[in-house]
Simulated assay, not measured.
Amino acid sequence: MATRSALTARRIRIATELRKLRERVGMTSTEAAKQLGTSSGQLSNVETARFGVSPERVRAMARLYDCPDQAYIAALIDMATDKTLGWWESYREVLPSGLLDLAELEHHATAVRTAYTTHIPGLLQTADHAREIFRHVIPAPTPPEVEHRVSHRIKRQDVIYRANPLPYRTVIHEAALRMQVGGRDVARAQLQHLLVMSERDHISVQVLPFDVGAFPGSGQSINYLQGPVPRLDTAQLDQFHGPVLLDSEAHLEKYRRLLDVVEDTALTPEKSRDLIRSITQDL
């Protein structure tokens, strides 16, 4: 087993999933290591992502832990064998690891759902809008740091432009649409871009108007990234101190249901476009 150089989101996730499988059957790490023909120290290193894990070892662990879900096992093996270094790795020395994790998760996701109250989703932001957002980060970033963040955000958007674009659904509160980030010209260009993107077949944009009042998840920005199987989904929440990743089954079910309710509460994509056009015309 080779030591991994960087604790990426996917490397941490496969380690977490293997630990969950062992804990579900009530087996201690010492018991599991003995039956796997390894030491408890080596197993601990696998379960904390310090060591990588081979496809054969993943299969052996799945058999030992009585996991019958072949699609899930295949997805874990795919994660274990993926040695590709994504474009985001070039930012590892200049950006927080949470931003790199989000880019990695989006790249490998099968679909993404989001809900935003006070921001335009990052995948749908213009460069000028993103630049203005990053200028207000605390502590204040230097101009080069701002540009690193902007270029990273724009590169993330490749997932919705590539040949096999990522299916993307978002709900945006009217408050985010009316904030004049960067002034009228930048705000108008951002809304026009949002309208253009909302017309793409693989993108759905819905708006929560002010008159809906209270709604589930208000005040919380949510990114829900679907994996190859539901057990490998990830919920990502934006916090002041940085992105937070959630992958427990209880959390995933909660945020799936929350997004269902928010989408049902929001305007249809057609009526949402009408509202966005109206706000644009008011600028």
Rank of each mutant, 00 (worst) to 15 (best):
S5G: 10
A6D: 12
L7M: 14
T8K: 09
I12P: 00
R13D: 13
I14N: 08
I14C: 10
A15H: 08
T16A: 15
E17V: 12
L18P: 01
L21P: 01
R22Y: 11
R24M: 11
G26W: 07
G26Q: 09
M27P: 05
S29F: 09
E31R: 14
A33G: 02
K34Q: 14
Q35V: 13
G41W: 07
Q42T: 15
L43H: 01
V46D: 00
E47V: 02
T48K: 10
R50S: 10
S54Y: 09
P55E: 06
R57D: 15
R63P: 02
D66S: 14
A74T: 07
I77H: 03
I77E: 09
M79N: 02
A80N: 05
T81Y: 01
D82G: 10
L85S: 14
L85P: 02
L85C: 08
W87F: 15
W87Q: 07
W87E: 13
E89H: 13
Y91E: 08
R92C: 10
R92W: 11
L95Y: 02
L99N: 07
L100I: 15
D101Q: 12
L102W: 01
E104N: 04
L105G: 00
L105T: 03
A109F: 07
A109S: 15
A109V: 08
R113E: 09
T114W: 03
T114D: 06
T117E: 15
H119I: 14
P121Q: 04
G122S: 06
Q125Y: 00
Q125N: 07
T126L: 08
T126C: 09
A127C: 06
D128K: 07
A130M: 12
I133L: 15
H136D: 12
H136Y: 06
I138P: 02
A140C: 04
P141T: 00
P143A: 08
E147C: 00
H152M: 14
I154G: 03
D158R: 09
I160C: 04
R162D: 06
A163T: 07
N164T: 09
P165Y: 08
P165I: 05
L166K: 05
L166F: 01
L166Y: 01
Y168K: 05
R169F: 11
V171E: 00
E174Y: 05
E174A: 08
E174C: 08
L177R: 03
L177K: 02
V181K: 03
V181L: 14
V181W: 11
V181A: 12
R184P: 01
D185R: 09
D185E: 15
V186M: 04
Q190V: 13
Q192L: 15
L195D: 07
S198P: 09
S198N: 10
R200G: 03
I203S: 02
V205E: 01
V207W: 03
D211P: 00
D211A: 10
V212M: 05
V212S: 08
Q220M: 14
I222P: 00
I222C: 01
L232E: 07
L232H: 05
A235M: 11
A235V: 15
Q236Y: 11
D238P: 03
Q239E: 06
F240M: 08
H241W: 12
H241R: 11
P243Y: 09
V244I: 12
H251R: 12
L258D: 05
D260F: 01
D264R: 05
P269Y: 00
K271C: 08
K271Y: 13
S272N: 12
L275R: 02
L275P: 04
L275C: 07
L275K: 07
R277Y: 14
S278L: 07
I279W: 12
D282V: 09
